[in-house]
Simulated scan of single mutants.
Amino acid sequence: MSQAPSSMTFAGLEVWFDDRVLRPREWTQAQSDWAAELLDGAPAGQVLELFAGVGHIGLAAVAANARELVMVDLNPVACELARRNADAAGMGARVEIRQGRIDEVLESRETFPVIIADPPWVPTAGIGEFPEDPTIAIDGGEDGLALARIACEVVDRHLAPGGSAILQLGNIGQADQLDANLAAAGSQLGVVETRTFERGVLVRLGVRAGSSAG
């Protein structure tokens, strides 16, 4: 049975969650901060957050600027809580929430100068190590990268020229594997910067050196 919603402070925002969604991790404020840094010099346009959960990372990224935010998540409970969090932060009017698969809810011509992606990255065999976390929020498939690969496909189609995506992963090995997958697929995108933290890894995806932006 689901518990009543709880709240915590994340990057100065009150964030609501319950046991049907992933509890916000404090270290992921680094992802919000990095996205906000990139937005300072980015072209005009909305920010996109994939696998948004309750929305705390994306909301913190746009809290200090006037950007609009599109958040996508498959879990309807997460979307409901993300709406609550956007409204509580006073950002409800500039946040759009789309419930569904990340590769199905965007129009083909939509592009975004900054994309935030928080895919589940725990290998299926290891999800039992995290009994308090909903499977939908952490199960990344056999190698933990099944949904990260889909996120990269979405980024490839919807990243605006000169833009960047900040993707959350579990470790450096996953970052290297994802970069190799992108290269093998002939993508212009690659991992152009990596930041390592105790609880996970953040990578910035952009056009590889020597690649044409097309």
Rank of each mutant, 00 (worst) to 15 (best):
W16C: 11
R83C: 13
G141W: 11
M71H: 12
R98L: 12
I166M: 01
A35G: 07
F130K: 10
V155L: 04
F197S: 00
V70N: 08
V154M: 08
F51T: 01
A125N: 10
M71L: 14
H158A: 04
I166L: 13
V155H: 05
G140A: 00
S108F: 04
Q99T: 14
L167H: 15
Q31W: 07
A30L: 02
T135H: 09
R195W: 07
R98E: 08
T28A: 02
G12F: 09
D73A: 13
T9R: 15
V191S: 07
F17M: 07
T124Y: 11
R67I: 06
V201P: 00
P24A: 06
D176S: 12
P119A: 06
E49W: 02
S211M: 14
Q177S: 12
E14T: 14
T194D: 10
G170C: 05
G214F: 02
E142H: 14
G58F: 09
F130E: 05
R208M: 10
E68A: 07
G128V: 15
G163S: 07
E104G: 11
T111C: 10
I136T: 06
A117N: 13
Q3Y: 04
D118F: 03
V154P: 04
V201M: 05
E26C: 05
W34Q: 15
S212W: 02
P5F: 07
S211Y: 05
S212P: 04
A146C: 03
Q174K: 06
G140D: 01
R23Y: 11
T124K: 10
A60D: 06
I166G: 13
A185T: 12
Q3E: 15
E153Y: 13
M71Q: 14
E14A: 14
A160W: 04
M8E: 09
Q46G: 15
G170V: 03
E68I: 01
F112V: 13
V72G: 02
N85P: 08
C79D: 08
S211C: 03
A61D: 04
I116W: 14
G186Y: 09
V15T: 09
Q29I: 15
N85D: 04
P161F: 01
L22T: 13
V72R: 07
P161C: 01
R204N: 05
G92H: 04
F17L: 12
N171Q: 14
C79V: 10
A82Y: 05
D33W: 13
C152N: 06
N85R: 03
I102N: 11
M1R: 15
D18G: 09
P161I: 03
R98T: 03
L22F: 08
